Amino acid sequence: MASNKKRTPKSLAAGRPPTFHRPKSISRKATKTLINRLHLLEKRKRQAIAKGDKAEEAAIDAEIQSLGGIKRYQEASLQGQRHDRGGDSSRVLMQWLQPCLTSKPSSGRRLRMLEVGALSTQNACSKSGCFDIERIDLNSQGEGILQQDFMQRPLPRDESERFDIISLSLVLNFVPDPKGRGDMLRRATHFLFPPGQHLDNPQLAAHFPSLFLVLPAPCVTNSRYLDEERLASIMTSLGYTKTASKTSQRLVYYLWKRDSSCGGAERQFSKKEIRSGASRNNFAIVLD
């Protein structure tokens, strides 16, 4: 049964490197190298924090700053979203949703989307004209993106502050610890409309409210603590049903529908090894 104990949600900033200004031009090879290096440094930093090694933590922070921190990471990610680089994960989402988006709610309103970790106002979802989109990010890259930590965002007071769909594209992997990732997934449910109560169009009601989740593929395909089955169990526990998924060489994409029929007692998921091997990574999601 879900615990009623109040939690103080951790700031996402705890898992993101500090900002540092650098020129914006970056090659494709350099983009990939930079992103991979920053991910590795974040992993090493979490390990140093867990061990209480302040000297190692400071040294890693210094290297992160020398690479440009979150500002540089976001510039690299923006370039990775260019069409000629196969980016913009929201194109996958639009392919999945296009058949149902030909119809609209009888009320005439557009579907509401919350995009967490937004990098651009010109992605496929933005250009579709199907959504009223609220975009937030820890370090806003321009107009149309509110600078805000999702874990500190006030919970909805009424339906005007809820959404039909939430996008967590390459966000969960930047939360610094397994419990924080579980807290983020749990918190997202509070920002979605209650299932089966807000849409009078059956075609749309079959797909919304929903959560779009994108992770680096190794988080699921090569983790000691997480695989497809365990991720599905965690999401089912939170009241979701998987409606679409895709795995590429670099990323895994999921669309989860919030479904009242899946509701009930929320299970606990500890950090439990499910695959062994020296080459495995330690990505995990914990629900306590």
Rank of each mutant, 00 (worst) to 15 (best):
K6Q: 12
K6N: 06
R7F: 11
P9S: 06
A14K: 07
A14P: 00
P17D: 12
P18W: 06
K24E: 15
S27W: 05
S27E: 03
T33R: 02
L34D: 06
I35L: 15
H39M: 12
H39K: 09
R44Y: 08
K45L: 15
A48P: 03
A50L: 15
A50G: 04
G52K: 02
A55V: 12
A55D: 11
A58H: 04
L67S: 05
L67F: 14
K71V: 09
R72P: 02
Q74I: 12
S77Q: 11
S77E: 11
D84R: 00
R85T: 05
M94Y: 05
M94P: 00
W96T: 00
C100T: 10
P105D: 12
S107F: 05
R109K: 15
R109S: 15
R112E: 08
M113I: 03
M113G: 02
L114S: 00
G117C: 02
G117F: 03
A118N: 01
S120L: 13
T121E: 13
N123E: 06
N123H: 09
C125L: 05
C125I: 05
K127V: 10
R135W: 08
R135G: 00
I136W: 04
I136S: 01
D137Y: 03
G142E: 14
I145S: 04
Q147S: 15
F150A: 01
F150G: 03
M151Y: 04
P154C: 03
P156K: 06
R157L: 14
E159N: 08
S160M: 11
L172K: 01
D177S: 14
G180M: 04
R186T: 11
R187H: 06
A188Y: 00
A188M: 03
T189D: 12
H190R: 12
P195N: 02
N201Q: 15
N201T: 14
P202Q: 06
Q203W: 02
A206L: 09
S210K: 04
A217G: 10
P218V: 10
T221V: 05
T221C: 10
N222E: 15
S223E: 10
R224K: 14
D227F: 10
M235N: 01
T236D: 15
S237E: 09
L238I: 02
Y240V: 01
S248H: 13
Q249E: 14
R250N: 13
Y253V: 01
Y254V: 02
L255K: 00
R258D: 01
S260R: 08
S261M: 05
F269P: 01
K271M: 14
K271A: 12
K272F: 14
I274S: 08
S279P: 02
R280W: 09
N281T: 07
